[in-house]
Simulated assay, not measured.
Amino acid sequence: MSTPLTGTTALVTGASGGIGAATALSLAAQGANVALVARRKDRLDELVGRIHSSGGVALAIEADITDRLQATAAVDQTVAAFNSLGILVNNAGIMLLGPADSAPVEEWDRMIAVNVQGLLYTTHAALPHLLSAAEGPRGTADIVNISSLAGRVPIAGSAVYSLTKHGVGAFSEALRQEVTGRHVRVALIEPGPVATELFTHIRPEILEAGKEAFANATLLQAEDIADTITHVVTRPARVVMSEVLIRPDGSQW
């Protein structure tokens, strides 16, 4: 039986866990061939096994998208395997929090490299293929950029993380204006706090200091965001969901 994304190929970055892994599973369940891109090949292989066991099609691609050549090669490998690319989910990201005056500058470099440069490199490599796919039977192609509530509402302790996510929002809107007439949809997804590994990247002392703020907070689940992404890319070609803000119930942020 045909499913909404049958015949479509999706590439998901940061697919080794959290939102990326949940999105890969969800898109595969809708019939997409899914290229899984991340640095942790063992986890990608495990996820490929899960998708295959459910009757889906997936390919593991080990790559560090902060390296432009590796990002480009990941796109090329996807197209070589599946002959097209119709959906790009730019999910890879890191969140390193703390006051700006005491922050290790290396953390800023890492966030800019992954959250901004990696997204740009992958998008640039994917765009020709997405524009071509938009002329096919589906009548559209999709770029989904994962931002954050922090990309809309900056708070103390998240200055550079917020900067990167505001940048993703600005890039997404400008790109939408450029490609919407060519039937490529650009969606910005802005989740609030999600229960993923993102928090484990934070320095222990910063995590401890902020523990009280999250003590009684309801956290979103990775599957909540994956469901939203899948909803966005399975709309009729005439429907463009260009921005989705997702807060957990009771959130004060």
Score class of each variant (00 low, 15 high):
Asp64Tyr: 03
Ala159Gly: 14
Thr72Met: 14
Ala156Trp: 08
Val75Asp: 03
Ser147Arg: 02
Ala38Cys: 07
Ala92Arg: 04
Leu130Phe: 01
Gly49Cys: 04
Leu120Pro: 08
Arg68Glu: 15
Ile155Thr: 15
Ile155Tyr: 15
Arg39Thr: 11
Glu106Ala: 15
Gly118Pro: 02
Ser172His: 09
Gln70Asn: 05
Asp109Lys: 12
Gly139Asp: 01
Val153Arg: 15
Ala133Asn: 06
Leu59Val: 06
Met111Thr: 01
Arg138Tyr: 12
Ser147Asp: 02
Ile65Glu: 02
Ala71His: 05
Thr140Ile: 09
Ala74Asp: 04
Asp45Lys: 10
Val37Gln: 04
Leu85Val: 02
Gly169Met: 12
Ser162Trp: 08
Asp64Asn: 09
Pro104Asn: 05
Ala81Asp: 05
Ala170Glu: 12
Ala63Thr: 02
Leu59Phe: 07
Met111Val: 04
Val168Phe: 08
Gly118Ser: 01
Leu163Glu: 15
Leu85Thr: 03
Val48Lys: 08
Ile146Cys: 00
Ser148Asn: 03
Ser53Leu: 11
Gly157Val: 02
Asn90Ile: 06
Asp67Gly: 09
Leu36Val: 05
Ser84Glu: 14
Val48Asn: 07
Ala100Leu: 15
Gly98Asp: 00
Ala100Arg: 10
Phe82Asp: 04
Ala63Phe: 01
Ala113Lys: 05
Ile146Asp: 00
Ala159Ile: 12
Pro137Trp: 13
Val144Pro: 00
Pro104Asp: 08
Ala103Ser: 14
